[in-house]
Computed example of a mutant assay.
Amino acid sequence: MSKTKLDTLLSSLKFNDQGLIPAIAQDNTKGDILMMAWMNKEAIEKTLSSGRVCYWSRSRQALWKKGETSGQHQDLVDLIIDCDRDTILVKVKQNGVACHTGRRSCFYTSVSENGDCTEISNVEIDPKDLYGNKPS
């Protein structure tokens, strides 16, 4: 993508006061929602130029190339912008699990009408195996 087209795209997006936009990651084949994270302009640029999904880590205040430490990376299939231009849908080929808890998806707790919570997916990889002794 040319610099002009990229600049036009980025200037059309509605970032929040911190310069971030929500990004929802969806498995391109299965259609399940894997996670929600944040992107800034640089994360979008790196994602589009590299084909590997990159986010902004609010806790680390740094770019976060998904899978950099765990090996559970996301290959970009498509980047879709919603009608209000304030949310991004990132269709990905997920390599491994998406969640730092070792589950395929970060969305694994179902809440019933009476408020009971049930875990609806199992841990596939022990987080210690993903990150060693680092906190997740």
Results as ranks from 00 to 15, higher is better:
residue 67 G to T: 07
residue 57 S to P: 07
residue 127 P to T: 09
residue 56 W to C: 03
residue 85 R to H: 14
residue 95 N to S: 09
residue 23 A to M: 11
residue 7 D to T: 06
residue 99 C to E: 01
residue 31 G to S: 09
residue 1 M to E: 11
residue 135 P to R: 07
residue 91 K to E: 13
residue 43 A to Q: 03
residue 12 S to D: 14
residue 49 S to K: 12
residue 102 G to F: 01
residue 39 M to Y: 07
residue 60 R to H: 13
residue 136 S to W: 13
residue 5 K to F: 12
residue 121 S to V: 02
residue 73 H to V: 04
residue 113 E to G: 02
residue 60 R to A: 12
residue 118 T to P: 00
residue 132 G to F: 04
residue 45 E to N: 07
residue 7 D to F: 02
residue 2 S to D: 14
residue 19 G to M: 09
residue 125 I to K: 02
residue 55 Y to M: 05
residue 103 R to S: 04
residue 93 K to V: 08
residue 15 F to G: 07
residue 97 V to Y: 01
residue 5 K to N: 15
residue 62 A to R: 12
residue 127 P to Q: 11
residue 85 R to A: 13
residue 84 D to Y: 08
residue 15 F to C: 10
residue 83 C to G: 08
residue 66 K to I: 02
residue 14 K to A: 11
residue 36 M to L: 14
residue 92 V to P: 00
residue 37 A to I: 04
residue 57 S to A: 04
residue 37 A to Y: 01
residue 10 L to M: 07
residue 34 L to W: 00
residue 25 A to Y: 03
residue 118 T to G: 03
residue 41 K to P: 04
residue 47 T to M: 07
residue 9 L to C: 08
residue 55 Y to T: 02
residue 73 H to Q: 09
residue 108 Y to F: 14
residue 26 Q to D: 11
residue 24 I to E: 05
residue 45 E to L: 05
residue 106 C to I: 00
residue 103 R to G: 02
residue 74 Q to M: 07
residue 109 T to C: 09
residue 17 D to P: 00
residue 116 D to R: 08
residue 133 N to Q: 13
residue 36 M to A: 14
residue 55 Y to E: 03
residue 56 W to N: 02
residue 127 P to V: 05
residue 85 R to W: 03
residue 13 L to W: 08
residue 20 L to Q: 09
residue 46 K to Q: 14
residue 114 N to E: 14
residue 56 W to T: 02
residue 109 T to G: 03
residue 96 G to S: 05
residue 69 T to K: 13
residue 118 T to E: 13
residue 100 H to V: 06
residue 47 T to V: 06
residue 89 L to W: 06
residue 69 T to F: 10
residue 78 D to K: 15
residue 103 R to P: 01
residue 75 D to M: 06
residue 129 D to E: 15
residue 13 L to P: 03
residue 47 T to A: 11
residue 41 K to Q: 14
residue 92 V to S: 01
residue 71 G to Y: 07
residue 103 R to N: 03
residue 68 E to A: 15
residue 31 G to D: 09
residue 45 E to G: 00
residue 21 I to A: 05
residue 81 I to Q: 04
residue 27 D to A: 00
residue 127 P to S: 10
residue 79 L to E: 05
residue 74 Q to K: 02
residue 37 A to K: 00
residue 37 A to G: 10
residue 100 H to A: 06
residue 42 E to M: 09
residue 75 D to V: 04
residue 104 R to Q: 11
residue 70 S to V: 06
residue 61 Q to Y: 04
residue 91 K to R: 13
residue 33 I to F: 09
residue 39 M to E: 07
residue 121 S to N: 04
residue 114 N to H: 12
residue 80 I to M: 11
residue 54 C to Y: 08
residue 90 V to A: 14
residue 26 Q to N: 08
residue 123 V to H: 08
residue 9 L to A: 06
residue 98 A to L: 01
residue 127 P to H: 11
residue 109 T to W: 14
residue 128 K to V: 11
residue 77 V to D: 12
residue 110 S to W: 12
residue 96 G to N: 07
residue 52 R to K: 15
residue 52 R to Y: 14
residue 73 H to E: 12
residue 65 K to M: 15
residue 4 T to G: 04
residue 86 D to Y: 10
residue 40 N to L: 03
residue 110 S to L: 13
